[in-house]
């Protein structure tokens, strides 16, 4: 069992309250996932590149990291440290050099996310504690996804927590369990895809990344996941413009959605949504099995049956 929450704002007036609303939703889902929590939040002007990185020894790892990076990439670097995570901002064309520098010089630092607006924060612990550590309530943004984890398939670690970064400004959260993840991991590793842990969802994320690197759109990758991934899943994916939802054909993992003029919201259960403004008059429904849904800014919702 796990909990998923998602909030996509149509009303720019709510952007300053995004972190606050998502944090309430996340904490409500503690019963479904008390062992770790994470959040992916999309904000900022998207003008540069952003890396969210994590270290188990932040005092050592992040000390003068921005100075070292500036020298290495010969460019501007802004660093904001939040507990075990740090957000590094560069000019867009320097993200490759920065990642190379980190990979070669900092085995202690793990990349949580990369893109231009996405930041991912995740740690082991109760959702309320994780939210406090990263001051999630204070964050503003256009949309975000949160996850509370009750591990069934693999260890309770930071790297086993959700969301998983699948591509630039893309992320995945999962409720369920994939049953063919070992075979799929072997297949993807043979194809050269890097998979760090024994976690089933990381394989799902790596699968989507691989599909998109080999020519699929995110929608096509989600569609093909219905054929290639076996097991139970409700996936919520974050993109730069919005988010998508897909459930496996059996659809035993719960999902409920609500839409008003101000937002589209996702919750594993309705009680995650009850404090959203205007929820009593929202359109509330359960997403269909084996159907890919997308919401994005400037576009009407789409649903595509498998």
């Amino acid at each position: 069992m796990c909990g998923i929450v998602g909030l996509f704002l149509k009303d720019p007036g709510l952007q300053s309250a995004l972190g606050d609303m998502l944090t309430d939703m996340l904490i409500t889902m503690t019963d479904r996932g008390p062992d770790s929590a994470g959040i992916a939040i999309y904000g900022g002007d998207g003008a540069g590149a952003k890396l969210t990185v994590q270290s188990d020894t932040p005092e050592d790892s992040f000390a003068k990291l921005d100075n070292h990076l500036r020298k290495a990439i010969k460019g501007k670097v802004a660093m904001t440290v939040k507990d075990t995570h740090a957000v590094l901002e560069f000019q867009t064309d320097q993200i490759g050099a920065a990642r190379t520098f980190l990979a070669e010089n900092h085995p202690d630092i793990r990349v949580m996310s990369h893109g231009s607006t996405l930041e991912i924060y995740k740690e082991v612990g109760l959702p309320r504690a994780v939210a406090d550590r990263f001051a999630l309530r204070q964050m503003a943004g256009t949309h975000g996804i949160g996850h509370t984890r009750m591990a069934t398939e693999s260890a309770v670690t930071t790297m086993g927590a959700h969301p998983f970064n699948t591509g630039p400004d893309q992320c995945l959260v999962h409720n369920g369990s994939l049953s063919n993840h070992n075979a799929m991991r072997r297949k993807l590793r043979r194809l050269g895809v890097h998979i760090e842990t024994e976690n089933d969802t990381e394989v799902g994320a790596a699968y989507l990344t691989w599909k998109m690197q080999t020519g699929s759109t995110l929608g096509e990758a989600l569609q093909s996941s219905l054929d290639d991934l076996d097991g139970f899943f409700t996936f919520v994916v974050g993109t730069k413009d919005g988010f998508g939802v897909v459930r496996d054909p059996i659809a035993c993992k719960p999902a409920v959605m609500a839409e008003t003029d101000q937002y589209v919201a996702f919750g594993s259960e309705y009680r995650a949504l009850v404090n959203l403004p205007g929820i009593d008059h929202a359109r509330v429904w359960e997403p269909e099995p084996a159907t890919v849904y997308f919401w994005s800014h400037g576009q009407t919702p789409t649903a595509q049956a498998a």
């Binding site: 659809a251 409920v256 509330v284």
Partner: peptide
């Protein structure tokens, strides 16, 4: 009696 929808 449920006025709205019912889940699974």
């Amino acid at each position: 009696l449920i006025e709205g929808d019912a889940s699974q």
